Computed example of a mutant assay.
Amino acid sequence: MTIATAKLSDPAVRTFVAAINAGDRDAFLAVLTPDATMSDDGSDRDLRDWIDKEIFTVRGRIDVQTESDGGHALIANFTNETWGEMRTAWRFTIDGGKISRFDTGQA
């Protein structure tokens, strides 16, 4: 069962998911701190290169299945035109209402 984006607990995470699903790169970047970092499957990646390759040029979509840790940890089905659908885990570090780091990988 999918959790509606509007029902996600943390406002920054809610904006992050909504921006991905709307294909809105500007809104996505606006919810991140200027020095935000990320990892994929345990390896740090260049955030801007990764989001373009994995999300915004390949119609990425995130359908949240569960949330925990006050909305800072998600299990979701992530879909894009490169990899199809996969079950993923997302963990967020929030700083001043913005995301300073996110870690994702297969769940």
Rank of each mutant, 00 (worst) to 15 (best):
T2D: 08
A4N: 06
A6T: 07
K7F: 05
D10Y: 00
V13D: 06
V13Y: 03
V17A: 00
A18K: 09
A19Q: 09
D24M: 07
D24S: 15
R25C: 03
D26T: 10
A27F: 09
F28A: 12
F28N: 02
T33P: 01
T33L: 11
D35I: 02
T37E: 05
M38A: 13
M38P: 04
M38N: 14
M38E: 07
M38C: 11
S39M: 09
S39D: 05
S39T: 13
R45Q: 11
L47R: 06
W50V: 08
K53A: 15
E54V: 07
I55T: 14
I55K: 13
I55M: 12
I55W: 05
F56Y: 10
T57V: 03
R59V: 03
G60M: 10
G60H: 00
R61I: 07
R61V: 07
D63L: 08
V64T: 08
Q65C: 01
E67L: 03
S68N: 10
A73F: 04
L74R: 02
I75R: 14
N77T: 08
F78H: 03
T79P: 09
E81F: 06
T82I: 11
G84S: 13
M86S: 15
R87M: 01
R87L: 07
W90H: 14
W90I: 01
R91S: 11
R91A: 15
F92L: 10
I94E: 02
G96Q: 07
G97Q: 00
G97M: 06
I99A: 03
R101L: 03
D103A: 13
D103M: 12
G105W: 04
A107Y: 03
A107I: 04
